[in-house]
């Protein structure tokens, strides 16, 4: 049995392979690579889940025993798994494979980033404040939300490409994307799902902070950026539901929202003075 680190590096390549298959199926309009892509993606997600479970077991063997959701490496591994899982659900429900190009790419990039030497992949014991079930709920829900937003962003990019190409294209890769209405609807569905989970994520985080430090909100940069992200998606939902925005404007807002997600996730840690609760992740 390989250890989780080895398994997860193999999974990185499987996601890469899934991306190649989906891309080939899309560009060359072949169904064989498409079906192959689905199989490879399922294999990658299964390997990813196994790696996650294995790391959990390893932490028990080392005597620390915690759910592997406590540093940036572990959260990236979970993020890939969430992207793959949500995408496969969409693929089976809507029978569209073109979105797989983006989904497999995001999953690949996240897990590849995790294996960079600058990301510490050691299993470290948890400091007392992190030993909380609220933390587990917080990380899982936040990252399910982020994963849904990632897929929504991928679909929005497809929308923007397709609508920029106009209706001239009767055939070719762009014409093989789902029609604009489906893309728009899928973006919306992913965003509502992501918004619900981001809300729960922020709330469980607040409850955890209240339990550990006696304050549910402290305006620390990570908290504030998650609120900014939440506000952007809330704006999007209101623009759509109340002012009837659809199409390109929603697609653009969805990309802006995902940029905010990325900044919340990575960017905040680049701020020089970030310290405190979230500095570990």
């Amino acid at each position: 049995m390989p250890n989780s680190a080895t398994l997860l590096s193999i999974v990185t390549f499987i996601y890469g392979l899934a991306f190649v298959c989906y891309l080939a199926a899309w560009i060359f309009k072949k169904s064989l690579p498409g079906r192959l892509g689905t199989c490879v993606m399922i294999a990658a997600a299964a390997g990813n889940a196994l790696g996650f479970g294995l790391r959990w077991a390893e932490s028990y063997q080392m005597g620390y025993g915690y759910a592997p959701l406590s540093n940036i490496y572990e959260s990236l591994v979970f993020f890939s798994l969430a992207v793959a899982g949500i995408y496969l659900f969409v693929e089976f429900k809507y029978k569209v494979r073109t979105i797989g190009v983006f989904a497999s790419l995001f999953a690949f990039l996240a897990i590849a980033y995790a294996s960079l030497p600058s990301v510490d992949s050691q299993i470290q014991p948890l400091v007392p404040a992190l030993q909380s079930n609220w933390l587990i709920a917080h990380v899982i829900t936040c990252f399910l939300g982020y994963a849904a937003f990632a897929i929504a962003c991928g679909i929005s990019i497809m929308y923007l490409i397709k609508s920029a190409a106009g209706s001239k294209q009767a055939s070719g890769p762009i014409a093989r994307m789902p029609d604009l209405e489906t893309l728009d609807d899928l973006t919306h569905q992913m965003i509502t799902f992501g918004f619900l989970f981001l809300s729960i994520g922020i709330i469980t985080g607040a409850i955890w902070a209240e339990q550990a430090w006696g304050r549910y909100w402290g305006w620390d940069p990570k908290e504030t950026w998650s609120l900014i992200t939440w506000l952007i998606y809330a704006t999007l939902l209101h623009a759509r539901l109340m002012r009837g925005w659809t199409g390109r404007r929603i697609a653009c807002l969805s990309c802006v929202g995902f940029a905010a997600v990325l900044f919340t996730y990575f960017g905040v840690n680049l701020l020089p003075w970030i310290t405190g609760l979230h500095s570990y992740m």
Partner: peptide, 24 residues
């Protein structure tokens, strides 16, 4: 007006950024 809510939600999002780039 819902236009006001959209404007307010976005203003809150944008102004909140200052507090994360300037230590408080």
């Amino acid at each position: 007006s819902v236009r006001l809510s959209v404007v307010l939600l976005l203003s809150l999002a944008v102004t909140s950024i200052f507090g994360t780039v300037i230590p408080q």
